[in-house]
């Protein structure tokens, strides 16, 4: 085999590869190396570096980052969002995909409808969600609370006899904020997962289901004992990419809360890891940002390794 693949003129292959390698070196490899470098230079700042200042090597950036109250809150937000949204969106996507796969009527139309969020800009979706959960009034959280008008979600709640909830506005609670974020992120994550899982479902041999039917297998048992195990490699893929995406959550917060990353009275309350890095960069603290980026990287690495370890036992290839 080796002879077949090996070229007689290897330099030719390098020439073909060079544009891609060149761009990768500049835009991927060097930034990664530079991130590590900046992270280990004490209090590194691009501005000061341009002014000719030199920095000592050390782990001061990491120490500073870990001491930051803001960083810990960002870490907490990221973890909460990840742990809630990945399982919920995966299970929902699985159920929807199985349902979509089992119906014949309007299947293609429904598939398209379920896929629409994927082609919609997430900031735009965020603004629509913000409008849906919105509440306009004043004195929120005080006995003299005045609600002038409420978004469609609160309208619905009141229609069914509930009371309006202050989801995202001035004075809203952390739990309400997280609930909105979870609903929004799950909704945003569904289409891609449904698409991938549906593709997987359609590649399962129909004879397994015929065999199960002849043997009188219940629907629940077919789902848990046949569909899920046969789909497990794809479920693992969806979960792993879901966690990686979840740890990089940022735009969704901006989409709902805008640049303040929290309700008006508590700006930055819902900030995430990526948000923290972004803020550090914009305040010209590249060293701190790089250290946070490396911490985020190592968290994603560890979680992915755990995922792979778990899937080794659970996934049937």
């Amino acid at each position: 085999m080796a002879e077949l693949v090996e070229s007689k003129r290897p330099w030719k292959a390098w020439i073909y590869l060079s544009p891609a390698i060149f761009l990768l070196l500049i835009f991927t490899v060097w930034p990664i190396i530079n991130t590590v470098r900046m992270a280990f230079l004490e209090s590194y700042s691009g501005l000061k570096a341009a002014g000719g200042q030199t920095f000592r090597i050390g782990i001061g950036n990491f120490q500073k980052v870990l001491k930051y109250q803001k960083f810990l809150s960002c870490l907490k937000n990221t973890f909460i969002l990840c742990i809630l949204t990945v399982p919920i969106s995966t299970i929902l996507a699985l159920l929807i995909a199985v349902a979509l796969n089992s119906i014949k009527f309007m299947q293609k139309t429904l598939q398209t409808i379920f896929f629409l969020p994927y082609v919609t800009n997430s900031i735009a979706i965020g603004m629509v969600f913000a409008a849906m959960f919105n509440m306009v009034g004043s004195f929120f959280g005080t006995p003299n609370e005045i609600v002038v008008t409420a978004g469609i979600i609160n309208n619905l709640l009141e229609f069914f006899g509930g009371t309006a909830v202050n989801w995202i506005n001035y004075g809203s609670s952390y739990a309400a904020n997280i609930t909105v974020m979870v609903i929004y992120i799950v909704w945003n994550a569904l289409p891609f997962k449904i698409l991938i899982l549906l593709g997987g479902l359609q590649s399962i041999n129909k004879q397994y289901y015929d065999a199960a039917r002849v043997d009188g297998t219940s629907r629940k048992r077919i789902f848990t004992k046949i569909t899920v195990p046969l789909l497990s490699p794809i479920i693992a893929y969806v979960v792993i990419t879901g966690f990686i995406g979840g740890f990089k959550e940022y735009t969704s917060i901006v989409g709902i809360f805008g640049a303040s990353m929290g309700p008006a009275d508590n700006a930055g309350r819902l900030n995430t890891m990526v948000g923290f890095i972004y803020d550090a960069l914009s305040s010209n603290s590249q060293g701190r940002a790089s250290a946070a980026a490396l911490i985020l990287f190592s968290i994603i690495l560890v979680v992915t390794l755990i995922n792979l370890q778990v899937s080794k036992k659970r996934v049937h290839y």
Binding site: Q207, Y208, D210, A212, G216, T217, S218, K225, P229
Partner: peptide, 30 residues
């Protein structure tokens, strides 16, 4: 399922993630 038929498929349709024993047990567990 109520007819009491055993069907052997052309491609066997054995569940690939189950062992031989689990495959044979499958109809009984239903």
């Amino acid at each position: 399922e109520s007819r009491g038929v055993g069907l052997v498929f052309q491609n066997y349709a054995l569940y690939p993630h189950l062992t031989v024993k689990q495959n044979i047990l499958f109809p009984l567990q239903n």
